[in-house]
Design a protein around this nucleic acid. Structure first.
Length: 299
DNA sequence: AAACAGCTCAACCGCAGGGTA
DNA sequence: TTACCCTGCGGTTGAGCTGTT
């Protein structure tokens, strides 16, 4: 038996939306909201549309402050960077670009940006191997690794710092995932946890503090034994002068800025940290059997 | 002017996962 | 625990537009 359809396809209109339909939907949602039920919405308004279609139309077209087309160079670079870092997670990428929808970005990537990046890659290859952070670096347009990462990125912790490697022994806690990332520590002490990026800059993270926001408090932080599961941060009303910006890298490949990160959930950021690609700025190391982690304590 | 190819992007589809009875 | 409903997501489609021959 097949899956039950979400609506009666014989009795719903499909295809492009008319201005009248747009007006009906927009006016209703602006007055009453969605009511938390998209399926029931079209019947309430008297639209012969599937609830999913209404939702899509609102989110991608009618919602206020939507921008269409005209992507800036900065937006291009951010999309490329995020795609290479986290793959085709369009909703997360869209969350970093105010006014842009995941559908728009997906279309833009598939029709133009991918070609642009391929062109850039070809030019780089013609000029020789692209170098970054002192290491050879070839990136791929299929960057998202399978869920079980085994090979660590090319990164070594700074040799001259007071740094103690903490062995992280696989297999990972099965709770580890993109969406509920965890940092596994060998004990409960995570005072002055240090995170390194690929250019040896460090970002200190004291207990209960957002690593990029001074004097911030971590809410809903779960610590079970040696597992720390970051979940929710109070991301509103953060004074600009309280945000610590990681400095741009000398090779021009900027890392994600702290502000960009604040606009998304911390889980997304940690995902980036744990899923570095060849040119990811933040080089958390996914250990194999012989590597130690890049989590460390200052002394 | 017509035919064709390539491109764009709105819309659709099916699946996964969360919530709830 | 299970079944069902709903939402959100990423992949895909196809109508319409634009450029080329």
């Amino acid at each position: 038996m097949g899956r039950a359809p979400c609506c009666d396809k014989a009795n719903v209109k499909r295809g492009p939306w008319s201005p009248e339909e747009d007006a009906k939907l927009k006016s209703y949602i602006e007055k009453h909201g969605t009511g938390g039920n998209w399926i029931a919405l079209p019947q309430k308004i008297g639209l012969k549309r599937c609830g999913k279609s209404c939702r899509l139309r609102w989110l991608n077209y009618l919602r206020p402050n939507i921008k269409h087309g005209g992507f800036t160079e900065d937006e291009d670079n951010l999309i490329i960077h995020l795609y290479i870092t986290i793959g085709s997670r369009w909703s997360i990428i869209a969350a970093q670009l105010p006014g842009r929808t995941d559908n728009d970005i997906k279309n833009y990537w598939n029709t133009r940006l991918k070609k642009k990046l391929l062109g850039r890659q070809r030019r780089e290859q013609q000029r020789g191997t692209h170098r970054r952070g002192g290491q050879n670096c070839n990136f791929s347009l299929n960057p998202r690794p399978p869920p079980q990462l085994v090979a660590p990125p090319p990164f070594l912790p700074p040799s001259n710092s007071a740094f103690t490697d903490i062995p992280i022994t696989p297999p990972f806690d099965p709770k580890f995932s993109y969406d509920q990332p965890q940092i596994l520590l060998p004990n409960n002490n995570w005072e002055n946890l240090i995170m390194y990026d690929t250019s040896d800059r460090n970002i200190s993270c004291s207990q209960n503090q957002h690593p990029f926001i001074k004097n911030s408090t971590v809410h809903d932080q779960h610590q079970l034994g040696s597992d720390i599961n970051f979940r929710t941060f109070d991301e509103e009303n953060i004074p600009e002068d309280q945000v610590m910006y990681p400095t741009p890298q000398s090779d021009g490949q900027d890392c994600l800025s702290a502000v960009d990160m604040i606009n998304s959930s911390w889980g997304d950021i940690i995902s980036c940290l744990f899923y570095p690609s060849a040119i990811s700025s933040y080089g958390f190391c996914m250990p194999d059997e012989n590597t130690t982690g890049l989590l460390g304590y200052s002394e």
